[in-house]
């Protein structure tokens, strides 16, 4: 059964000069339950926008995204929020942990807006990622690697059907990056969650059985240079 299906998805931005620039134009993309797919893409290829469209954070200009059986374009913003809270886990490049909250509280936040907080499950997740002794540590009291593991635990906290990982190892050294990738993949597998990971790191990509190039599925050419949008 497909956990994600995308058809004719389009997203464009209006530039400050008033010109409209396409950033995502994907005719078809799908992911089965429990699948693990690496999406390769250079900087500026629209990876984050693509993931945000899947997550329902951004609304597409056109096309259809079906996530866990729900058609995102037909859902209201509140319904999309709820779907994200109940069916999706998101691991960000910079982890996006809330600084005023402990590791355990950050994981609980991942549960709060969905099915509700389950403290023992949150603890067990942190235990699983090797942070049992760091439950009450604030992000600034932990190493980058530990913070990333909290982010992984948080992404899995709501029993998601799909985990989106946006350059999750971008801030780690190669050794830590590989360890972290293994952990993410293992935990997704253990929890029955599909994984869609985007990265431009060849070594990371090489660990996946299935790799898709964003430039192949996205018919908008990537912008050259760093951090820009596509034309």
């Amino acid at each position: 059964m497909k956990v994600l299906e995308i058809k004719n998805l389009k997203k464009s931005y209006l530039s400050p000069e008033g010109e409209r620039h396409d950033i995502v134009n994907v005719s078809f993309f799908s992911l089965g339950g429990g699948d693990q797919l690496a999406l390769a893409g250079e900087s500026g290829s629209g990876k984050t926008t693509f993931l945000n469209l899947i997550a329902g954070i951004l609304k597409p200009d056109e096309g259809d995204v079906t996530l866990a059986g729900k058609h995102l374009p037909t859902l209201s913003e509140g319904q999309r929020d709820l779907l994200r809270a109940q069916s999706l886990g998101y691991i960000f490049q910079t982890f996006n942990l809330l600084q005023g909250y402990t590791a355990l509280e950050n994981v609980k936040l991942g549960m709060m807006f969905g099915r509700g907080v389950d403290a023992s499950y949150a603890t067990s997740l942190l235990d699983r990622v090797g942070l049992k002794a760091r439950l009450n540590y604030l992000p600034r009291q932990m190493s980058v690697g530990q913070q990333q593991r909290v982010a992984v635990a948080r992404a899995l906290a709501n029993h998601p059907k799909l985990v989106l990982a946006d350059e999750p190892t971008g801030h780690l050294d190669p050794v830590r990056a590989m360890e972290s990738l293994t952990l993410i993949r293992q935990i997704c597998r253990e929890n029955g969650a599909a994984l869609l990971l985007v990265s431009h790191d060849k070594e990371i990509l090489a660990k996946f059985e299935r790799i898709e190039n964003l430039s192949r599925i996205n018919r908008v050419p990537a912008m050259t240079g760093s951090g820009g949008h596509k034309k």
Binding site: I57, D81, L82, R84, A85, F92, L109, M112, F113
Partner: peptide
């Protein structure tokens, strides 16, 4: 703002 954005990305509604 970033905190609100993170909460929203975790599924918090605007109303929350």
């Amino acid at each position: 703002r970033r905190e609100f954005a993170i909460l929203r990305s975790l599924g918090a509604r605007r109303s929350t």
